[in-house]
Amino acid sequence: MAPDRDEAAAMTPVVDARALLQRFGVLALEFPDWHVSLREQWLVIGPSGSGKSTLLALLAGLRRPSAGRVAIGGQDLAALSGAALDRFRGRHIGFVPQQPHLVATLTLRDNVELARYLAGLPRDPARVAAVLARLGLAGRADHRPHQLSRGEAQRAAVARALVNRPALLLADEPTAHLDDAACAETLDLLLHQAGEDGAALVLATHDGRVKARFSHRLALGGVASAPPAP
């Protein structure tokens, strides 16, 4: 999936999930068939234990489903072996975890650059600088994570997720434990930045405050819900 997506690529769903099932011992989480197109912004919502994080892990290739199929940008994740899957994830999927989890020993710039290095992409200082500038972090590039405010660290995590121009940006509970203002700011950031890079956004949360900001919603319960109407 090239960063400059052509028309053909635009026709391919970014996420194509079919008959997904994840077993945990005797328990099983079943997910509906689901498609996400380029630039779409989806909210995956449901109570704790409904399978939101599991779904994101399946989409990111961090888990192999017990049954069913996930394709990202037309690439069946099951067809990729371990290292190839890791590289694919690094190049095409951005992930913003609940906590920023920046590498403490690296500067902010190095943290963002790390995403390119681990994805096997060539160094691109200009791209790193541009992403940091876009997120208002240009002046903090040489600071270490412990020198950043929580908001700055969260923006750095977004910068790291976007630096490789992913087709799909996944965010897992990014607004948990944030006050209303910070919650709104984080949402603005994710929606705007994903849009600016042309990435599809899938945000999983149990936080009801964010519902209104998304037109596409996938509600999960104890059992997977039916896909939303188009």
Partner: peptide, 11 residues
Amino acid sequence: DIAVMRLLGAS
């Protein structure tokens, strides 16, 4: 850190 590295594409 290791989890993040794996997430970012480290095999």
